[in-house]
Design a protein around this nucleic acid. Structure first.
Length: 174
DNA sequence: CCGCTAACGTAATCATACC
DNA sequence: GGTATGATTACGTTAGCGG
Protein backbone atom coordinates (compact mmCIF):
# COMPACT_ATOMS: atom_id res chain seq x y z
CA UNK A 1 0.00 0.00 0.00
CA UNK A 2 2.80 2.34 0.61
CA UNK A 3 5.21 3.27 -2.05
CA UNK A 4 7.23 5.85 -0.32
CA UNK A 5 5.70 9.06 -1.47
CA UNK A 6 2.33 8.74 0.02
CA UNK A 7 0.66 12.04 0.58
CA UNK A 8 -0.29 10.32 3.53
CA UNK A 9 -0.75 10.83 6.99
CA UNK A 10 1.38 8.19 8.51
CA UNK A 11 4.75 9.81 8.29
CA UNK A 12 3.43 13.29 8.49
CA UNK A 13 3.30 14.13 12.14
CA UNK A 14 0.18 16.02 12.91
CA UNK A 15 0.70 19.35 14.54
CA UNK A 16 -0.52 19.87 18.05
CA UNK A 17 -4.22 20.48 18.47
CA UNK A 18 -5.67 23.16 20.64
CA UNK A 19 -5.29 22.61 24.33
CA UNK A 20 -8.15 20.53 25.58
CA UNK A 21 -10.90 22.48 27.24
CA UNK A 22 -11.70 21.63 30.83
CA UNK A 23 -15.12 22.89 31.83
CA UNK A 24 -15.82 24.36 35.20
CA UNK A 25 -18.77 22.79 36.92
CA UNK A 26 -20.94 25.87 36.45
CA UNK A 27 -20.00 26.01 32.79
CA UNK A 28 -20.99 22.41 32.29
CA UNK A 29 -24.30 23.13 33.96
CA UNK A 30 -24.88 26.03 31.59
CA UNK A 31 -24.14 23.82 28.61
CA UNK A 32 -26.37 21.02 29.83
CA UNK A 33 -29.15 23.43 30.55
CA UNK A 34 -28.98 24.92 27.08
CA UNK A 35 -28.80 21.49 25.49
CA UNK A 36 -31.87 20.32 27.33
CA UNK A 37 -33.78 23.19 25.83
CA UNK A 38 -32.58 22.55 22.33
CA UNK A 39 -29.98 20.34 20.75
CA UNK A 40 -29.13 23.13 18.36
CA UNK A 41 -28.06 26.70 18.87
CA UNK A 42 -28.47 29.56 16.51
CA UNK A 43 -25.43 31.69 15.94
CA UNK A 44 -26.83 34.43 18.13
CA UNK A 45 -27.66 32.04 20.95
CA UNK A 46 -24.26 30.44 20.72
CA UNK A 47 -22.54 33.79 20.90
CA UNK A 48 -24.66 34.81 23.82
CA UNK A 49 -23.89 31.63 25.72
CA UNK A 50 -20.21 31.92 24.94
CA UNK A 51 -20.24 35.44 26.28
CA UNK A 52 -21.89 34.36 29.49
CA UNK A 53 -19.46 31.51 29.94
CA UNK A 54 -16.39 33.45 28.94
CA UNK A 55 -15.25 30.96 26.33
CA UNK A 56 -14.85 31.15 22.56
CA UNK A 57 -18.06 30.41 20.73
CA UNK A 58 -16.30 27.79 18.66
CA UNK A 59 -15.90 25.73 21.84
CA UNK A 60 -19.66 25.89 22.35
CA UNK A 61 -20.24 24.76 18.80
CA UNK A 62 -17.90 21.80 19.19
CA UNK A 63 -19.47 20.85 22.49
CA UNK A 64 -22.91 20.75 20.93
CA UNK A 65 -21.61 18.77 17.99
CA UNK A 66 -20.10 16.17 20.26
CA UNK A 67 -23.08 16.15 22.56
CA UNK A 68 -25.48 15.53 19.70
CA UNK A 69 -23.61 12.37 18.81
CA UNK A 70 -25.53 9.24 19.80
CA UNK A 71 -24.41 8.17 23.25
CA UNK A 72 -22.30 11.26 23.13
CA UNK A 73 -19.25 9.22 22.41
CA UNK A 74 -19.58 7.20 19.21
CA UNK A 75 -18.01 3.84 18.80
CA UNK A 76 -20.40 1.70 16.88
CA UNK A 77 -23.52 2.06 14.80
CA UNK A 78 -22.45 1.05 11.30
CA UNK A 79 -25.01 3.38 9.91
CA UNK A 80 -24.26 4.54 6.45
CA UNK A 81 -24.20 8.15 5.55
CA UNK A 82 -27.80 8.94 5.19
CA UNK A 83 -28.13 12.21 3.46
CA UNK A 84 -31.69 12.23 4.59
CA UNK A 85 -30.85 12.54 8.23
CA UNK A 86 -28.68 15.55 7.63
CA UNK A 87 -31.41 17.28 5.74
CA UNK A 88 -33.83 16.33 8.43
CA UNK A 89 -31.65 17.74 11.16
CA UNK A 90 -31.25 20.93 9.26
CA UNK A 91 -34.97 21.10 8.76
CA UNK A 92 -35.53 20.60 12.44
CA UNK A 93 -33.24 23.45 13.32
CA UNK A 94 -34.91 25.65 10.77
CA UNK A 95 -38.28 24.70 12.13
CA UNK A 96 -37.37 25.27 15.73
CA UNK A 97 -35.94 28.64 14.99
CA UNK A 98 -38.53 29.42 12.42
CA UNK A 99 -41.39 28.67 14.71
CA UNK A 100 -40.22 31.37 17.03
CA UNK A 101 -39.92 33.75 14.16
CA UNK A 102 -43.14 34.73 12.58
CA UNK A 103 -43.47 36.29 9.22
CA UNK A 104 -40.31 38.23 9.69
CA UNK A 105 -38.09 36.18 7.54
CA UNK A 106 -34.95 37.31 9.27
CA UNK A 107 -32.56 34.45 8.80
CA UNK A 108 -29.70 36.65 9.84
CA UNK A 109 -28.80 35.17 13.19
CA UNK A 110 -29.33 31.52 12.41
CA UNK A 111 -25.89 31.21 10.93
CA UNK A 112 -22.75 33.16 11.34
CA UNK A 113 -22.66 35.79 8.63
CA UNK A 114 -20.50 34.83 5.77
CA UNK A 115 -16.98 36.12 6.20
CA UNK A 116 -15.58 37.83 3.15
CA UNK A 117 -12.00 36.84 2.80
CA UNK A 118 -10.03 39.36 0.84
CA UNK A 119 -7.46 38.60 -1.80
CA UNK A 120 -4.45 39.42 0.40
CA UNK A 121 -5.87 37.15 3.08
CA UNK A 122 -6.45 34.42 0.54
CA UNK A 123 -2.87 34.60 -0.61
CA UNK A 124 -1.59 34.10 2.90
CA UNK A 125 -3.87 31.15 3.48
CA UNK A 126 -3.09 29.55 0.16
CA UNK A 127 0.60 29.81 0.74
CA UNK A 128 0.20 28.20 4.14
CA UNK A 129 -1.99 25.52 2.64
CA UNK A 130 0.75 24.47 0.27
CA UNK A 131 3.18 24.16 3.12
CA UNK A 132 0.79 22.20 5.27
CA UNK A 133 -2.87 21.56 4.49
CA UNK A 134 -3.60 20.56 8.05
CA UNK A 135 -2.10 23.15 10.36
CA UNK A 136 -2.24 22.74 14.10
CA UNK A 137 -3.53 25.26 16.53
CA UNK A 138 -0.31 27.24 16.80
CA UNK A 139 -0.08 27.65 13.05
CA UNK A 140 -3.72 28.61 12.78
CA UNK A 141 -3.22 31.23 15.47
CA UNK A 142 -0.25 32.62 13.62
CA UNK A 143 -2.30 32.82 10.45
CA UNK A 144 -5.04 34.52 12.40
CA UNK A 145 -2.54 37.13 13.47
CA UNK A 146 -1.23 37.66 9.98
CA UNK A 147 -4.60 37.79 8.28
CA UNK A 148 -6.67 39.39 10.98
CA UNK A 149 -9.22 36.62 10.59
CA UNK A 150 -10.57 34.61 13.53
CA UNK A 151 -8.79 31.33 14.16
CA UNK A 152 -12.05 29.48 13.80
CA UNK A 153 -12.66 30.97 10.38
CA UNK A 154 -9.22 29.84 9.34
CA UNK A 155 -9.90 26.35 10.58
CA UNK A 156 -13.05 26.22 8.48
CA UNK A 157 -11.23 27.63 5.50
CA UNK A 158 -8.72 24.79 5.62
CA UNK A 159 -11.46 22.21 5.92
CA UNK A 160 -13.24 23.57 2.88
CA UNK A 161 -10.02 23.90 0.97
CA UNK A 162 -9.04 20.29 1.66
CA UNK A 163 -12.45 19.05 0.69
CA UNK A 164 -12.54 20.91 -2.59
CA UNK A 165 -8.98 21.23 -3.74
CA UNK A 166 -7.11 18.31 -2.29
CA UNK A 167 -7.28 15.03 -4.08
CA UNK A 168 -9.48 14.69 -7.11
CA UNK A 169 -9.12 18.41 -7.33
CA UNK A 170 -11.29 19.76 -9.99
CA UNK A 171 -10.53 23.40 -10.49
CA UNK A 172 -12.99 23.28 -13.38
CA UNK A 173 -11.10 25.53 -15.63
CA UNK A 174 -9.64 27.88 -13.21
C1' DC B 1 -3.23 2.19 32.72
C1' DC B 2 -7.83 3.55 31.16
C1' DG B 3 -12.46 5.98 30.55
C1' DC B 4 -14.45 9.97 29.09
C1' DT B 5 -14.75 13.43 25.75
C1' DA B 6 -12.63 17.82 23.50
C1' DA B 7 -10.55 18.37 19.27
C1' DC B 8 -10.23 17.06 14.91
C1' DG B 9 -11.11 14.88 10.32
C1' DT B 10 -14.13 13.96 6.03
C1' DA B 11 -18.25 14.21 3.17
C1' DA B 12 -22.41 16.31 2.19
C1' DT B 13 -25.26 20.12 2.41
C1' DC B 14 -27.10 24.66 3.40
C1' DA B 15 -26.68 29.46 2.42
C1' DT B 16 -24.97 33.62 0.48
C1' DA B 17 -22.17 36.76 -2.49
C1' DC B 18 -21.32 37.62 -7.11
C1' DC B 19 -21.77 37.35 -12.12
C1' DG C 1 -29.74 30.61 -12.85
C1' DG C 2 -24.98 29.15 -12.21
C1' DT C 3 -20.57 29.25 -9.82
C1' DA C 4 -17.56 29.92 -5.75
C1' DT C 5 -17.06 29.44 -1.21
C1' DG C 6 -18.05 30.23 3.90
C1' DA C 7 -20.78 27.89 7.66
C1' DT C 8 -23.17 23.90 9.59
C1' DT C 9 -24.51 19.25 9.84
C1' DA C 10 -23.77 13.86 10.77
C1' DC C 11 -20.63 10.60 11.73
C1' DG C 12 -16.27 8.68 12.81
C1' DT C 13 -11.31 9.09 14.69
C1' DT C 14 -7.46 10.94 17.51
C1' DA C 15 -5.62 12.27 21.59
C1' DG C 16 -5.41 14.90 26.23
C1' DC C 17 -7.00 15.22 31.06
C1' DG C 18 -7.84 13.17 35.24
C1' DG C 19 -9.20 9.19 38.04
Amino acid sequence: MEAGSNMGVSSLARESPRRKMVWQAWQEQALLSAFSKSKYLSFAARQDLAGQMGVPDSRIRVWFQNRRSPTGAVGHAPNRSTAGSRQLASRQLQKELGSREQGGGMPSDHRQPRTRITLPQSRILLEAFERNPRPGFATREELAQRTGLPEDTIHIWFQNRRARHTRRGRPTAQ
